[in-house]
Amino acid sequence: MAEIFDRDTLLDLTVNVIPLGIILFFVAAFVLIDPFGGLDFYGRVLQMGLLAFPLVALAILTYVSGKAIAGDEKRSKVFFQGQATIEGSPEKHEVEEAIEAEAAGETDVEDPYGGDADEDESEVDPDADDNDDNDDESDVDADDESDESDESDADEDGEVDADEK
């Protein structure tokens, strides 16, 4: 467990700590300020129960999901969303390392935020170009160009205008 909930994972989980904090704030406020004083016991139980139930449920779900997600991150390869089943797609850490290397070495980075700029692949792994229909890496560029020309009737958005068809 100690390994699963490392610093990064805890940072990810902060997003759910904030609503938990808001609920706790109101719990404290209702206890300390007691705006509707002179409650009967039953009312107090309901009032606190309505806060406690979401609090506990959210805490449990955050723990369980954090454990599942972070655990799988440690156990197996991590890809970007939707790319796990695509052959030859780069792993997340490869891309991130490439960006870091790029940022450290080269100043001439066009898009420092785009964790997916084209330059990455060449440094990571030539095969990583997820042109999945490539059986033969040598003609990667040729493929790309042919793709371009195929879509010559598509405009820059990739959509086709009625008049142009």
């Binding site: 970007f80 939707g82 997916d116 084209d118 997820d130 793709d147 879509e151 990739g158 086709v160």
Partner: peptide, 21 residues
């Protein structure tokens, strides 16, 4: 409508954003 001319009509490969579907 005009037929799609490639398996990657939105050209997601260019930005490495292709997905499984």
């Amino acid at each position: 409508g005009p037929r799609v001319q490639s398996g990657d009509p939105w050209r997601l490969d260019e930005t490495d954003l292709n997905t499984a579907e």
